[in-house]
Design a binder for these strands. Structure first.
Length: 935
DNA sequence: CGAATCACGC
DNA sequence: GACGTACGTGATTCGA
């Protein structure tokens, strides 16, 4: 197969430049060598991994093309190129020529146009064409044999976008429609604004609805308000923008097949260049280990920018070839889109018939339609059911509360029947909704969202996406019913039930079909226990916790808020005085300018990639000795955060109906298996600082007859490491019940336990911490504020002392490399697609995840099991105590005084024995009149 | 509205 | 020897 790679040179240079500009750039004599290096590395990656048979790099010249309507703006744009980057340009040309890759420069045409024309011509000649350009510009040309190639970036492996990916990404049916979106959005060409007020999201939604820009303009009368006005007024400009976004496929350029054929890099050209730029590693990557810049320097010859002729006698590529591992694919797309019949059950008779049918089933699928997304604060609009593929029912309910309740009551018996298993997508939400209508859903659960989460935790579990990937079916979108997200979004309540029926019954139907697909996938992944014994039962537990909520001392927070307010104003004043200027301290941009330009606190201040000064905590702390203003700024920030995120926000989250705060636990976001919490996030309530702790005091028991009980796993992750690594030293520390950080320090520093000082313990703690979170020497040196070398030494000593841990890490990594996944004690898998990637950065991510996922994930498994068992026992014993919060390794309960003594052993027992381990598991339980006291 | 920056917990 | 370095949620600013 002939494989042609077409590169947009300028786009790649900018990419290399910005990727590296986060860190201080390596510049010598005004030359940005890191841009050259980044460019060369990417080029090399492509050559090695993709092995193109033909290739070309296309550069725009500085001349304007017919696509540039505003010449002045174009010139300004070109001149805005950073100086060091423009100096790098000739070097990049040399690199391209050195690799013997044809360099095409445009003459009045955009690089995109040339690439597009060549791509089309090559496609007709049977080439597979890969275009390395921003996908935004090129998405419209993708076809069966034309792909967009996105080189590996930080955190992402290389990506190839084909037709399927482009359609999904732009949410369109035809690739040509991408141009329409770009035209509307106006982001395609500089200085052509498209249609004002229409951004990417709106553009996508409109195209989805109308199919084309012309159609939108023709039907603009259907639009509302400002949007209609804009579309009508700026229609012409939008069309112009579309025209300019369109790639010109008629550039007079010939596809010179022989000329584009790949050949070996030229040692004569590249060696002196690498020597000049001191690219040792790159040199070795290209020419092998014996490459040395010292020798070549002496023999170095200068080459002209374009003067060097392409070397003769082309042979095949001599660079080392590494194979890329096939990434696992999981989409099965063979379920047919069966004929469906969806019924509207909107009369008592029809409902009775449905209830009778449902009662006979052993399992049903159901879904609720509501007026909002907050389960504790919305109304039921309808219920939908499915029992076999292709069939579905929708039951609308009245907006009148009593009528609604009576319809729900008709289905109560079915929903509460423990012998009828229930399937749903994100079924916790539906369970919560029904709780508000006095229905306690019972029966074995199957949640398609959770099912997909255990099958593949890293990807998304949104139903529309699941349906497309696994059923090859595109469901009716919710935006078709209630319009795009935003303040003008309609309510489900106002939609014709006949219309909702198609959407809602379909949802239930699809969910049911997904269940079948996922059941076999779960079997394949050996995740049956995990899903049926942990995730699904946990749904009931979480629903109860969310429904229960926690009580917040509103008055105390209001007082605290006033106190903070006063202190913040005081600090503000001090900062203004010291700075001699009034500015917005909360704006990192303004703050940076004041600190580094006005006060000149640090002449070598680092900038972020957007050109702002860095003003993060670590940066400011480093300046603390220069001026005490930074102390005030940090204090200001802390108080501001405290006030806005917690003190002022929490009272606003109090539910009007219950007077309590109902968080929402997300069971399917964290790839490690942890839960997350939002609205409000109860898992990041301050604890470290004195003032932050005040917030915890506002979490109080239900009433004077209750008390809070908090139970904490002690060092659970480290115990799990000790358990799975079987490291003797670490195990001994736990069996002897030593303070683990002190014990670690004693080992690492080779001193007796009682000789461990504060610094030693702190360092040891940080290493333990780092291992849990998959940090590296760099991360450790950052968190401890010590040189990287020192951090590396500590880590090295750590591994000598805890060889079991080192072995565990190596074993896990090997397992991951061979199997493509790692797993926790309960068999929760995490797939690591990049574990064999040739890109070091990308692979590094995967490797850290490989170590980290089993540890954090096992801890998550453990507390989940404990939660289920405690919840079950509280129910069995008919206790009034309630579990209210989970913070990764801590559980909080609202307990009547007379149950405190009874509940403590229950909690302790179930937490300690959730998973059988050899390493002892310790749990600390406390009680108190607020969370701080209990913890 | 989105991106960028910062900060909090584990 | 250079890349870049735990996750998740949320507030704020700022430019479009």
């Amino acid at each position: 197969m002939k494989k042609l790679f077409l590169l947009d040179g300028m786009a790649l240079i900018y990419r290399a430049h910005f990727a590296l500009s986060k860190t201080p750039r390596f510049t010598s004599g005004g030359l940005n060598t890191s841009a050259v290096m980044g460019f060369t590395n990417t080029l090399l990656d492509v050559l090695k991994k993709e092995k193109p048979t033909h290739m070309a790099v296309v550069f725009d010249t500085d001349a304007p093309t017919e696509r540039h309507t505003d010449f002045e703006a174009y010139k300004a744009h070109r001149e805005a190129m950073p100086e060091d980057l423009s100096k790098a340009l000739p070097y990049i040309f040399k690199v391209v020529l050195g690799f013997n890759i044809p360099l095409i420069t445009s003459d009045g045409y955009e690089a995109d146009d040339i690439i597009g024309t060549l791509a089309k011509k090559a496609e007709q000649k049977g080439y597979q064409v890969y275009c390395m350009t921003p996908d935004k510009d090129f998405a419209q040309l993708v076809s069966d044999n034309i792909f967009i190639y996105k080189p590996a970036r930080m955190g992402n492996d290389m990506e190839i976008l084909g037709v399927k990916e482009v359609l999904a990404k732009w949410e369109v049916e035809k690739v040509e429609q991408v141009i329409d979106i770009l035209g509307l959005w106006g982001d395609a060409v500089d200085n052509i604004p498209g249609i004002p007020g229409i951004g990417e999201k709106t553009a996508k939604a409109l195209i989805k609805q109308y199919g084309s820009m012309e159609n939108i303009i023709a039907n603009s009368h259907e639009l509302k308000g400002k949007q209609r006005e804009n579309v009508e007024q700026f229609a012409e400009q939008g069309l112009l923008s579309k025209k300019l976004a369109t790639i010109n496929l008629n550039v007079p350029v010939e596809l010179d097949e022989a000329g584009l054929e790949m050949c070996a890099p030229s040692k004569e050209l590249l060696e002196p260049l690498f020597a000049e730029l001191e690219f040792r590693t790159l040199g070795r990557r290209v020419f092998g280990d014996d490459f040395s810049i010292i020798e070549t320097r002496a023999a170095g010859t200068q080459i002209d920018m374009f003067g060097a002729p392409v070397a003769e006698g082309r042979t095949t590529m001599q660079v080392e070839i590494t194979d890329i591992a096939e990434s696992p694919t999981h989409a099965a797309k063979n379920i047919t889109n069966v004929e469906h019949e969806y019924h509207l059950a909107d009369t008592p008779e029809k409902r009775a018939e449905l209830v009778a049918l449902l009662s006979q089933q052993t399992h049903i699928c159901f879904d609720t339609e509501t007026t909002g997304t907050d389960a504790n604060n919305c109304e039921l609009v309808g219920l939908s059911f499915a029992i076999k593929p292709g069939q579905g029912w929708y039951v609308p309910v009245s907006a009148v509360k009593e009528d609604c309740q009576s319809v729900v009551n008709e289905f109560k018996a079915v929903l509460e029947n423990p012998d009828i298993a229930k399937t749903g997508q994100n079924i916790k939400y539906d369970i919560m909704i029904l709780k508000w209508y006095n229905v306690e859903v019972k029966g074995k659960l199957f949640d398609t969202m959770m099912a997909h989460y255990v099958i593949d935790p890293d990807t998304r579990h949104n139903m529309d996406i699941l349906a497309e990937n696994y059923l090859g079916y595109k469901p009716v979108s919710i935006t078709e019913l209630i319009g795009p997200k935003g303040k003008n979004q309609g309510s489900m309540r106002d939609v014709d039930p006949e219309k909702i029926k198609e959407y809602a019954a379909e949802d239930a139907d699809i969910t049911l079909q997904l269940k079948t697909v996922f059941e076999s996938k779960i079997k394949e992944a050996e995740a049956e226990k995990l899903i049926h014994e942990i995730e699904h039962p946990l749904i009931y537990v979480l629903a109860d916790m969310e429904y229960e909520g926690v009580r917040i001392d509103e008055g105390a927070l209001r007082d605290f808020s006033k106190e903070l307010e006063g202190d913040i104003i005081k600090l503000e004043k001090t900062v203004y005085d010291k700075a001699g200027v009034r500015f917005n301290i909360a704006s990192p941009k303004q703050l940076g300018e004041v600190l580094f330009e006005k006060l000149m606190l640090d002449p070598k201040a680092k900038k972020t990639k957007t050109g702002q000064y860095q003003t993060g905590e670590d940066v400011l702390l480093a300046l603390a000795n220069k001026s005490d203003i930074v102390r005030d700024i940090l204090d200001f920030r802390q108080l501001q955060k405290l006030k806005s995120t917690y003190v002022d926000a929490l009272p606003l989250m109090i539910n009007k109906k219950t007077g309590r705060v109902h968080t929402s636990y997300n069971q399917a976001v964290a790839a490690t298996g942890r839960l997350s919490s939002n609205n409000p996030n109860l898992q990041n309530i301050p604890i470290r600082t004195e003032r932050g702790r005040e917030v915890r005091k506002a979490f109080i028991p239900r009433d004077e007859n209750h008390i809070l009980v908090s139970a904490d796993y002690s060092q659970i992750e480290l115990r799990i490491i000790a358990e799975i690594s079987k490291d003797e030293n670490m195990r001994a520390a736990f069996t002897q019940n030593l303070d683990i950080h002190t014990a670690t320090a004693a080992n690492v520093y080779g001193v007796a336990l009682d000789q461990v000082d504060g610094t030693m313990r702190r360092n040891a703690k940080a290493v333990n911490f780092g291992i849990i979170y998959g940090q590296s020497a760099f991360g450790l040196s950052q968190s401890l504020g010590i040189p990287r070398k020192e951090a590396a030494e500590i880590i090295e000593q750590y591994f000598i002392q805890f060889p079991g841990i080192k072995n565990y890490m190596a074993d896990t990594m090997n397992f991951a490399r061979e199997n493509g996944y790692v797993c926790t004690l309960m068999g929760r898998r995490r797939y690591l697609r990049d574990i064999n990637s040739a890109n070091q950065t990308v692979r590094g991510f995967a490797e850290r995840n490989a170590i980290n996922a089993p540890i954090q994930g096992s801890a998550a498994d453990m507390i989940k099991i404990a939660m289920i068992n405690i919840h079950r026992e509280l129910k069995a014993q008919n206790m009034a105590a309630r579990m209210t919060m989970q913070v990764h390794d801590e559980l909080v309960f609202d307990v009547p005084h007379n149950e405190v003594d009874k509940i403590k052993p229950i909690i302790e027992h179930h937490m300690k024995n959730a998973i059988k381990t050899e390493v002892p598991i310790m749990v600390e339980i406390g009680t108190g009149l607020n969370w701080l006291e209990a913890h």
